[in-house]
Simulated scan of single mutants.
Amino acid sequence: MNLPTGTQEFGAEDTDLLVHTTCDGAAARLGHNLTLVFTSWRAVLARGDEPAASSLEVTVDLDSLDIRDSSGGVKPMTDNDRAEIKRNAAKSLRTREHPQLRFVTTEITGSWSAGEITGDVTLNGTTSAATFQVVALNGGFRLGGELKQSAFGIKPYSAMMGTLRLSDSVLLEVHLPQA
């Protein structure tokens, strides 16, 4: 796939940055699996002649977290549940001390049709490497990958003496428009 070189900026007004969470533990069926969305983020893709000569930088405002959808649970999610989830997320992510997530590419391999973007994620004052899969879609690309909360010093939310807890791994997904 031949793409034009140059710099492309995009963010929440162009596409959604999603986080998918699941519940673990003996009481996991009581909890809600969530699709979260960030309503304020910005990315800059500098495309070279080939993917290896390109870079991607992303900045996410963590306070912009919102709940897009939920599944599971023994009862439908209420507005109070949504507010509590957002408070717990802000507390776990320590958004007052570390209001942003940052991603900076260290390497892009493969092609724009099927490749990987590896880089450093800084979250909660900790930097850790992460790799995201790139897949071409009609009219753009899908980037997706997994982050472990514990890699950033985040203890996943738990309740009921740990029998209901958020899985350590969360899935990130974004669909990027093609320039």
Score class of each variant (00 low, 15 high):
P51W: 03
A52P: 07
A53D: 15
A53W: 01
S54F: 08
S55T: 13
L56G: 02
E57W: 02
E57G: 06
V58G: 00
T59C: 03
V60H: 01
S64Q: 06
L65M: 13
D66E: 15
R68N: 11
R68Y: 10
R68D: 13
D69V: 03
D69S: 14
S71C: 07
G72Y: 05
V74Y: 11
K75T: 11
M77F: 04
N80R: 12
N80S: 11
D81C: 06
R82N: 05
A83T: 11
E84P: 04
K86G: 01
R87A: 12
R87I: 10
R87M: 08
N88H: 13
S92L: 09
L93Y: 02
L93N: 00
R94D: 14
R94E: 14
T95H: 02
T95S: 13
T95W: 00
T95V: 15
T95C: 04
R96A: 14
H98R: 04
H98Y: 15
L101Y: 00
T105L: 04
T106K: 09
T106S: 15
E107A: 15
I108K: 00
T109R: 11
G110P: 02
G110D: 09
G110N: 09
W112N: 08
W112A: 09
G115K: 00
G115E: 01
G119P: 04
D120V: 13
T122M: 08
T122I: 07
G125H: 09
S128D: 09
S128K: 14
A130K: 05
A130M: 07
F132Y: 10
F132H: 01
V135F: 01
A136S: 15
L137G: 12
L137Y: 04
L137K: 15
N138W: 08
G139E: 08
G139I: 09
G140W: 07
G140D: 09
F141I: 02
F141N: 04
F141V: 01
R142K: 15
L143T: 02
E146P: 02
K148D: 03
Q149S: 03
Q149K: 02
Q149N: 06
A151T: 10
G153K: 05
G153S: 08
G153A: 09
P156R: 06
Y157K: 11
S158P: 01
S158A: 12
A159W: 03
M160G: 01
M161W: 12
T163M: 08
L164T: 02
L164A: 06
L164I: 08
L164K: 06
R165Q: 09
L166S: 01
S167I: 00
V170K: 02
V170P: 06
V170N: 07
V170G: 00
L171Y: 12
L172I: 10
V174W: 07
H175M: 11
H175V: 14
L176W: 09
L176C: 12
P177Y: 04
Q178E: 15
A179H: 12
